[in-house]
Structures are given as structure tokens and as C-alpha cells.
């Protein structure tokens, strides 16, 4: 071949190259992503927020605010979680199993950790985009009461990041993709969504089910969101606990994601 005109040095931004590839890949579905990002909150807010809300608000307020206001932060965090999962589970399964492209990437100077982090970063780009749109829709529906309600954007992204990190690790660890879908989505994701104080306060649930909320990043992020969007009363200790819990999940998730990615590639 011709004479090399570029020096061959290993650059430290490997994860960014992987993220660049992932985003390039997402761009193929940009119209769909934009449509879903706008359409989803509209549908949810209209049906449950406004529809179910009218039913509930005519009897009594939940947490002293209209149902739509109560529900909004939960929907925001849940959207972040769903987006974070989508962009980690499928790319991981595709990368290791369906298309084996991670093995191709790993034949270059890129390491397993950089692939894991790159996929994570690209997922976060998607989450940031969809959470921002979601927040705007919530704003248009009048579901946000405080002047600083935009701070719920970062807390929702935080929840998305936690789930993205955990799913990254799990999808890399579980080599059987059928098992992954049947088990994780039915017995983990669904209960977390239903029992995390999403549609009604966690305290309204029987005590033996409340633990599900406690271990769910969705509940912690939703509580932070409620504090920020309508000023739900939460003690400083609890606020700290919510942030600490999410931080631990994020760090542990990323730690294992990097570890499982590296191991599976070296097999």
C-alpha cells in the first residue's frame, strides 16, 4: 500500500469514536426517534395525565397537586430509563451476538472498556435529547409548577444513566438473549415501573411491596423530580439518600459493564 501519512499512535478518545459510531447508527432512525420522543409524552399525558387525572382530581388531590403534576416527574424519569435501556440492551446484544461487531471494533486499538463507555455515552446523548423534549411537552401541558423545574431534566437523565449502566452490564453478562428478554423485561422492568410510586405515592402501597420502590432507581429519581417540579416536601436526608442511591447504582453498573465487556471480548 502507499506510504503511511498518519502516525500510528493510540489515542485516548476511543470511547468517543465508539459513541460517534453509535450516534451515526441512531441517525438512521432520526425521524422515528424524533417522532417517538414527541409523540410518547403527548399520548401518556393525554390518556393518563389528563384522562385519569380528571377522574382523580374530581375526588381529591394527590400530594396536594393535580394528578397531571404528580405524574409528570415519574413519566419524565421513566422516559429517560426506557431510552437508556433501548440504546444499551440492543446495541450490546447486537455487538456481541447478532452482528458480532464489537469483536471487529476490538481488533483495532479500541479496548473493551472503551466500547462499553462509548455505547453508554451514545445512549446518554439519546436520553438527553428525549428528556429535554419530554420536559418541553410537560411544560406545554402546564404540568410543571416551580420556576426551576428544568432541574428535573438532569435528575431524570441521572435515572436513565443508572438503568443504562445496569443494562449494559447485564446484557454483556447474559449470553442467552431469550433469557434476557423474558426474565429481565417481565420480572424486573415491568414491576419496577408499576411499583415505583409512578402512578400513586409509594406510601399508598402495602408495606410488603414498598421495598420494590426502594431498590428502584425510578422511584428515587421520581422523588427528586417531584421535589423539583412541584416542591414536594422531602427532608434533606432523604434528598441526599436519593442522590447517593442513584450514584451508587451508576458507579456499580459502569464498573461491571466495563468488566463484563472486557471479559466477553477476551474469551
Amino acid at each position: 500500500m502507499s506510504i503511511t501519512t498518519e502516525p500510528k499512535v493510540v489515542k485516548p478518545y476511543g470511547a468517543l469514536y465508539v459513541a460517534e459510531y453509535r450516534i451515526r447508527n441512531m441517525m438512521r432512525f432520526k425521524a422515528l426517534i424524533v417522532m417517538v420522543s414527541i409523540g410518547n409524552p403527548f399520548l401518556y399525558l393525554l390518556s393518563i395525565g389528563v384522562g385519569v387525572g380528571a377522574l382523580i382530581d374530581s375526588n381529591n388531590l394527590i400530594d396536594g397537586v393535580p394528578y397531571l403534576t404528580f405524574l409528570a416527574p415519574a413519566l419524565l424519569a421513566n422516559a429517560a430509563i426506557a431510552g437508556g435501556m433501548d440504546e444499551t440492551v440492543f446495541p450490546t446484544l447486537h455487538g456481541f451476538k447478532w452482528g458480532k461487531i464489537f469483536f471487529g471494533i476490538n481488533s483495532t486499538p479500541i479496548t473493551g472498556s472503551q466500547i462499553a463507555i462509548g455505547v453508554f455515552l451514545a445512549a446518554m446523548a439519546r436520553v438527553v435529547f428525549l428528556v429535554t423534549i419530554y420536559w418541553i411537552v410537560l411544560y406545554l401541558f402546564g404540568a410543571l409548577e416551580t420556576s426551576y423545574s428544568w432541574l428535573a431534566i438532569p435528575t431524570a437523565i441521572f435515572a436513565g444513566a443508572c438503568f443504562a449502566a445496569m443494562m449494559l452490564a447485564l446484557a454483556a453478562k447474559m449470553e442467552n438473549d431469550n433469557l434476557f428478554f423474558t426474565f429481565i423485561s417481565r420480572f424486573v422492568i415491568m414491576p419496577l415501573f408499576l411499583f415505583s410510586g409512578t402512578f400513586f405515592p409509594l406510601s399508598a402501597m402495602p408495606i410488603y411491596l414498598q421495598w420494590i420502590g426502594w431498590i428502584s432507581p425510578l422511584w428515587h429519581a421520581t422523588e427528586l423530580g417531584r421535589f423539583l417540579t412541584y416542591g414536594r416536601e422531602i427532608s434533606n436526608q432523604m434528598l441526599f439518600l436519593h442522590v447517593a442511591f442513584l450514584s451508587v447504582i451508576l458507579i456499580v453498573g459502569l464498573f461491571f459493564a466495563v468488566r463484563y465487556y472486557t471479559r466477553r471480548l477476551a474469551k
Binding site: K8, V10, I101, F103, G104, S107, T108, P109, I110, T111
Partner: peptide
């Protein structure tokens, strides 16, 4: 590993193109 891989071109047994 990464420093060596920077100088290699690898064609695997199974194509892993995107």
C-alpha cells in the same frame, strides 16, 4: 494490546461488518 492492534489489520473467520 491496543498499541499492537494499532499496527494490525484483522480479517476474522466470520465477517463482523455492520
Amino acid at each position: 494490546g491496543p498499541q499492537i492492534r494499532a499496527h494490525l489489520g484483522v480479517v476474522p473467520q466470520q465477517d463482523n461488518l455492520d
